[in-house]
Write a protein that binds this DNA or RNA. Structure first.
Lengths: 187, 187
DNA sequence: ATTATAAGTGAACTATCGTTCACCATGCAA
DNA sequence: TTGCATGGTGAACGATAGTTCACTTATAAT
């Protein structure tokens, strides 16, 4: 059986707003708005819900947050500790500048030694200056690739993270379109 | 200068709810709620905002969505095409069962050949049955590790994705705590 | 059994909600 | 010049918001 709190948060997730007191009343099965009022006060006190200056409800923490455990080697905490865990929002973790961020699906194995496999999504930021050693999305002599950006003397070139492939020295122009800032893989 | 639409969405992001008509009025600089009413109707028509059955506003798409381009090799579309791009919500992409999902920070290089590096976050699901070949978080003879789950005959053992390390055959018990379902890396 | 505390009912209150109406200003087409 | 969309003002509407009050039931401790 779902707790009142879960029902309220489910409402928020599906409707993208908090329910009104009358709606919570129907949701939870109360016959009085005042019962809701007291329920909400309890939730506010325990910190899982906040109130606006106007009294309207907002969820206390981003519902997209996920518990972040420590290192793998530390293993799992007991269920009892689960409440005290740190949580992070993977969106906020991954995207610093959402306006210039894009996701690209990876094809090929040229960056496999950098831990980027075929089928992964790479998060790239467009229009940022790339430093030597960055992984970049580049347009070289007409074709697009993802490679390490390297420099030898004053010559800039691209290098794969896979011994199968040779470094690429641009014949005409080397245009950096975006810098790879993150990787997401799903099994 | 921010457009009215951007101001409304900024409000939603920071306050986790849509503004009321009176609030939009102050936000945009109108002196009449009716001007807001007409503005909203335009936004509803263009599809960037939706209305509840009760008239209350909800953002049309999850604001956490990010444009998803095609393959790396296809490169970047022109700015003009940017509106027609597909978008995905990285949260929904990554987490299928949020209730049992955790993030773990990776230590060590034992899974490096599987493209999982030190410092990466792995997304694990707890309490799921693991298949042979899955990457699992296991408690083996008292210590926690992340390894491939392998089987030889009826014997289950763990194998690293790094030739430096030998397979681990459990002496007493092999307890699978979670299955790795995703990886997130940030540069 | 008695009492104290917590939780729910039902009705009322004011403020604000989204909506509607009549009206005004501007710009562009005929 | 006229006509007519387009986008804004200002006031008013009923409906619903969150809140409060007085009262009743349920729970648990002594």
């Amino acid at each position: 059986m779902k707790s009142p709190k879960d029902k309220i948060f489910s409402f928020y997730i599906s409707r993208k707003r908090m329910p009104s007191y009358a709606e919570i009343m129907r949701l939870v099965g109360f016959r009085s708005k005042n019962a809701v009022y007291k329920l909400i006060n309890r939730l506010v006190e325990e910190g899982s819900v906040l109130k606006d200056t106007t009294g309207r409800l907002i969820p206390a923490r981003a519902l997209s947050e996920v518990p972040l455990l420590g290192l793998v080697e530390a293993g799992f905490p007991s269920e009892a500790d689960a409440q005290t865990l740190d949580t992070i929002d993977i969106n906020e973790y991954l995207f610093d500048h959402k306006e210039v961020s894009y996701l690209l699906k990876v094809k090929g194995d040229s960056m496999i030694d950098a831990g980027i496999h075929e089928g992964d999504l790479v998060m790239v930021e467009r229009g940022r200056s790339a430093k030597t050693g960055d992984i970049v999305i580049a347009n070289i002599d007409g074709g697009w690739t993802m490679k390490y950006l390297r420099k030898k003397g004053d010559k800039t070139y691209l290098e794969a993270a896979n011994k199968k492939y040779k470094p690429i020295y641009p014949e005409q122009e080397l245009q950096i379109a975006a810098v790879v800032k993150g990787v997401v893989r799903k099994y």
